[in-house]
Simulated assay, not measured.
Amino acid sequence: MNKLWGIIIIGVTLLMGACKPGTPSEFIQPDDMEDILVDYHLARAMAEQDGGPYEETNYRQALYIEAVLQKYGYTKSEFDSSLVYYYKRADRFVDIYEHVAERLEEQALLLGATEGEIGKYASLNANGDTANIWSDRTSLAMMPLPPYNRWDFKVAVDSTFKMGDSFLMQFVSDYMYQDGVREGVLYVSVSYDNDTIISRNIRFSGGGINQLRIPEFNDHQIESIKGFFYLGDGSHRTTTTRLLFLSNIQFIRFHKKQEEKQEVENMLFDESNDEKQKDSVAPGIDRERLSPRIMRR
């Protein structure tokens, strides 16, 4: 009897596994979709990197993406319909993009953004006067539908922070929109020990490098840093693809250079001494001789 029950349980388990919903055969399967999306973003980045007018960039992107689809044996119509299928199943789409992000981060040229402003901070660690202190995920896929339209973060504050630190947050954005308004937002706030809060935000609607700068505040210690990414235009549901992919997220901290601070202090000290000594010239000394003269021939 126990053996019979064991067979029944195994049979039910196998049946439940067989009934688990999969991707219909008319759509691109998840593994292939992941491969295509990795090459898709790299192709778009290559087109952006070549530069030129907006129309030329769009034309190159279309050619590169067509080459990617030919590589995997799919048409643009099949790709677009598969995007719509996964988009309507947001949880599955986000899972796919988690893997896409991991694979893109392993590439030597992450979305082609290893030069310029992004690249020069890419190899920095959390030490030094200029440091990349971002320890959270560096890539993110967002949709204008809750809960995928907002991502909150905190930056760890420790003893290496100093008064007078300033910050730069930057990232690469890549929109995959079939229609609709692109409304990306980054918000960051820095709180200090005297209840002062400095906050900044930027809106970004296109692809490429985006930067947000937070100025120095000299008189107090930093207590916390937090913020969020937000993707708007989600007031109504749609079956068309609206996806924002963020990559190479960095948060750079700049210490105020000690030599600059010392130079300012020395300047103030010299000016103070000049004021004190201005009217204390010893008797018998000709002030005229102490003044600079223009030598004439």
Results as ranks from 00 to 15, higher is better:
residue 95 D to L: 11
residue 94 V to R: 15
residue 61 Q to V: 13
residue 66 E to N: 06
residue 57 T to R: 06
residue 79 F to S: 03
residue 72 Y to A: 06
residue 63 L to N: 10
residue 84 V to A: 08
residue 93 F to L: 12
residue 75 T to F: 02
residue 85 Y to S: 03
residue 68 V to R: 00
residue 90 A to T: 11
residue 100 V to E: 13
residue 82 S to I: 14
residue 80 D to A: 14
residue 74 Y to P: 04
residue 58 N to M: 08
residue 81 S to P: 07
residue 88 K to D: 14
residue 93 F to P: 01
residue 74 Y to S: 01
residue 81 S to T: 10
residue 100 V to C: 12
residue 76 K to S: 06
residue 77 S to G: 03
residue 66 E to M: 03
residue 82 S to N: 09
residue 76 K to E: 03
residue 86 Y to A: 02
residue 69 L to Y: 07
residue 64 Y to P: 04
residue 73 G to N: 08
residue 80 D to L: 15
residue 88 K to W: 05
residue 69 L to V: 08
residue 93 F to T: 02
residue 91 D to P: 06
residue 103 R to F: 05
residue 69 L to F: 07
residue 90 A to P: 09
residue 100 V to H: 08
residue 91 D to G: 06
residue 89 R to E: 13
residue 67 A to Q: 04
residue 72 Y to R: 06
residue 59 Y to M: 12
residue 80 D to H: 10
residue 58 N to P: 00
residue 95 D to N: 11
residue 66 E to L: 05
residue 97 Y to D: 15
residue 83 L to T: 02
residue 57 T to P: 00
residue 68 V to H: 03
residue 89 R to G: 09
residue 69 L to D: 06
residue 100 V to D: 13
residue 73 G to L: 05
residue 84 V to N: 07
residue 86 Y to P: 01
residue 58 N to C: 04
residue 60 R to A: 13
residue 79 F to W: 03
residue 76 K to G: 06
residue 57 T to Y: 00
residue 83 L to Y: 05
residue 92 R to S: 12
residue 66 E to D: 10
residue 89 R to P: 10
residue 99 H to D: 15
residue 65 I to P: 08
residue 57 T to H: 00
residue 77 S to W: 02
residue 99 H to M: 14
residue 87 Y to K: 04
residue 76 K to R: 08
residue 80 D to E: 15
residue 99 H to T: 09
residue 96 I to M: 15
residue 86 Y to W: 02
residue 100 V to I: 13
residue 82 S to Q: 14
residue 64 Y to A: 07
residue 60 R to K: 14
residue 75 T to Q: 04
residue 67 A to N: 07
residue 69 L to P: 04
residue 63 L to K: 13
residue 81 S to Y: 01
residue 86 Y to R: 03
residue 83 L to F: 09
